[in-house]
Design a protein around this nucleic acid. Structure first.
Length: 134
RNA sequence: CGAUGAGAGAUGACUGUCGCGGGUCGGGAAAGCCGACGCGAGGAAAGUCGGGACAGCGCAGAGCACCGUACUUCCCAACAGGAAGGUAUCCGAAAGGGUAACAGCAAGUGCCACAGAAAAUUACCGCCUCGAAAGAGGUAAGGGUGAAAACGUGAGGCAAGAGCUCACGCGGCGGGUGGCGACAUACCGCCGGGGUAAACCUUACGGGCUGCAAGUCCAAGUAUAGAGGCAAGGGCUUCUUCGGAAGCCGAACGGGCUGCUCGUCCGUCGCCUCAGGGUAGGGCGCUUGAGCCUGCGGGCGACCGCAGGUCUAGAGAAAUGACAGUCGCCCCGCAAGGGGAACAGAAUCCCGCUUAUAUCUCUCAUCGCCUU
RNA sequence: GGUACCUUGCCCGAGCGGUUAGGGAUCGGUCUGCAAAACCGGGGACGGCGGUUCGAAUCCGCCAGGUACCU
């Protein structure tokens, strides 16, 4: 059970972000808008990368945006294991963007449940896509 | 002990588990590997309002424009910052304290709505003189208008009046005296003034422009804008075999000298050689500095000097977090217990200012009460 | 991160120290069988807080909100 969140799991490159939002599929799962893109692993190990977005429009103060992003990161690293299991099984990588759409800051406990739900939903959608292609 | 005012400071502590960003060390051929140690948000990190450091560009020179500052002396790298004073004004019974864009409308120009006769060389009702009257002249005390009406009060004086004269008061200029100075003045002489400079402006002093997305290096890679050489010499239109030719217009045109002018310098068509733009990626800039702490000395003070100690974030779509517990702090409750903790997140770095802030601590001043 | 600028009714938009123009929209009326057009009339605003001034939308500070540019 690995619960870390190292640098290579961040999406930083401009090109990666553009291709994720251009090609990726998405769904809403309050308080998130989830955008994801499965892609072949290439020469690197299986990786589930994450992009966070908390808009200045919804939170004017920088310390509130930081707070939300830290809570999401914390809950993501605790919940990403389910996603890794299916990726390891099919040897495929995935880029995920979580856009925070709520206008209030939830407690950590609640945030944990919401993120678990979003990851669960993402896994379900992937399984359906796999079944459809077969 | 309490109240009021001013100033200074703090911005919870510790333990465990998991996680993040830098650093150092060890292992490893290397890794998105393993391990150890240590560091990791603020007083405002904010606004970007001043001032610097630093960097690039520019800089023969002169003038103008533009911008900033504005009581004095001192401090500071510098400032629109600070200290000590002066003056004005406000609060207070007093002690004392707060506030001030605080140079000049007695240099010039402009403006002063409505009302009013008149808003600056004024004269409506008045008052006085002359005149039969119409009117002419003198005058600015009183009335009325207005935010503001040609120093205020009293006396003398006069036809009536008026700084016309005198006393006191306000103010200006010159001199004396005191103070480094702003300035003060129960001193002397001369003078009499509407307001407005956050109106133009005047005076004095100061100011190159742009900002780390500054700038610079690397690998990859080529546009033609850079450099050099040969050489050539303006612009427009038409034709063209793309070499050039013809016609017309003008004595040039374009650019640099960071807004303008003078002045001054450079370039112009084509060919060859060198060099190597933007975008995306990585490195440097990037944290040792007008640094912090302690002690001693100097100064009313801001601050300065000396000695010793110390290293205290450095990211890059951007780390500094989550959970649990214990002890402090505040609130509710007799108690068990329950609840709460403001404003707010570094982005090149400093010094200030401004704005947002819960709670606590300390110092000083004044007043009140109690005890000795 | 840095640098310039803007804010006047529901919307657009003049105003540069002296009662905040005008147009569109809206509401009421006239006209019409009803509406549109036309005509008449009404309500409604200087982003906020201070300062200068007799007087501030205007001049000067400080906040708030918004826009553009630099990569």
């Amino acid at each position: 059970m690995i619960e870390d969140f190292p640098k290579y799991e961040h999406i930083c490159k401009e090109n990666d972000i553009q291709s994720l939002f251009a090609k990726g599929a998405g769904f809403s799962c309050y308080p998130y808008r989830v955008v994801y893109l499965f892609k072949p692993v290439g020469d690197k190990p299986v990786t589930c990368r994450l992009l966070l977005s908390v808009s200045k429009k919804r939170f004017h103060h920088a310390f509130k945006r930081n707070r939300v992003k830290r809570l999401i990161r914390e809950s993501w690293r605790k919940n990403k294991q389910a996603l890794y299991e299916i990726c390891e099984r099919d040897t495929i990588s995935v880029d995920v963007a979580l856009v925070y759409n709520a206008t209030v800051i939830h407690s950590y406990e609640e945030m944990y449940r919401k993120t678990a739900k979003a990851v669960h939903e993402l896994v379900n959608r992937y399984e359906k896509e796999i079944q459809a292609t077969h």
